[in-house]
């Protein structure tokens, strides 16, 4: 199976700042690749390269085997790479179906909107992804954050996305809402899409991901198949294991022994220490 999206040794500088270095990533159809990392790890830079907002400075970026260098998000979109950003690009006061088709309205000649078609399609597409919106005429602002996120994803899928890039879709959501979005990611995978799921939450990433890329300070510090890594190891990698241990030692030195011991303990259970 050829990868839909394949990055090999990709790097990006902003002036003298090295934002990303030597990152490799591969997404095939029906696969979810999670990109994890703390703030400043380079997740945003990576997503901007994949989405076509920025061009990479080194390495290669291939889409279905063809090397590419995008100059705008439109280029990426034309090749079926759709990015759903955190702010979602929806207009809160407009009905769900108008948002769904905004910018790509279906018409019936003379500029007339095919309202019935758009209403029906919106309802069907959302239903296919497990969201039963009986009233697609309600303003999209009345939906919950998770549902809005799902409409944005369904929209990208409907307009021909082969690869979905999701920028922290669960970051601002409550537990239940995050669950709705995660379920949706699984749905997208089952429909045969490739998904790049950016998050800083290993508990969201682990259940849905097939492969995990962990970034730290612009460098990859792990690239694992699900079989190779446990949830605990993933969490530990994310937390930056050595730093947790360091903190424990510092606290011990200042006399907070109880806290330090607890942290030490935690580091050990997470498998971070050498002993």
């Amino acid at each position: 199976m050829t990868a839909l999206v394949k990055l090999t040794g990709v790097g990006k500088d902003y002036g003298s700042v090295i934002a990303l270095r030597d990152v490799s990533l591969e997404v095939a159809a029906g696969q979810v690749v999670c990109v994890l990392g703390d703030n400043g790890a380079g997740k945003s830079t990576l997503i901007k390269i994949v989405a076509g907002l920025h061009r990479h400075d080194s390495g290669t970026y291939e889409v279905q085997g063809e090397p590419v260098a995008f100059s705008s998000p439109r280029d990426a979109l034309d090749l079926g790479i759709a990015t759903v950003y955190q702010d979602l690009a929806v207009v809160p006061l407009m009905p769900v179906w108008r948002n769904f088709f905004l910018g790509s309205e279906k018409r019936r000649g003379l500029g007339r909107l095919d309202v019935d078609f758009m209403r029906r399609t919106t309802r069907d597409e959302l239903l296919a992804m497990g969201i039963d919106l009986r009233d697609v005429d309600q303003p999209i602002g009345t939906l919950s954050g998770g549902e809005r996120q799902c409409v944005a994803i369904a929209r990208a899928v409907y307009f021909g996305a082969k690869v979905l890039v999701l920028d922290e879709p669960t970051a601002a959501l409550g537990v239940k809402q995050a669950g709705v979005v995660l379920r949706y990611i699984v749905q997208a995978r089952e429909r045969g899409l490739g998904v790049v799921f950016i998050t800083h939450n290993p508990h969201h990433a682990y259940p849905v991901g097939d492969r995990f890329l962990i970034l730290n300070r612009g460098r990859p510090i792990g690239y694992h198949d699900k079989d190779d890594i446990t949830r605990e190891e993933l969490t530990a990698l994310m937390a930056g294991g050595a730093e947790l241990e360091q903190l424990a030692h510092e606290l011990e030195a200042t006399g907070s022994t109880a806290t330090a011991r607890a942290l030490d303990e935690e580091a050990r259970t997470l498998g971070l220490t050498d002993d």
Binding site: A89, V90, P92, M94, F101, L102, E105
Partner: peptide
């Protein structure tokens, strides 16, 4: 559709 969109959220539009 565009009129509502540019008034409701120009950046999203």
């Amino acid at each position: 559709n565009w009129i509502f969109a540019v008034g409701g959220n120009a950046d999203s539009a």
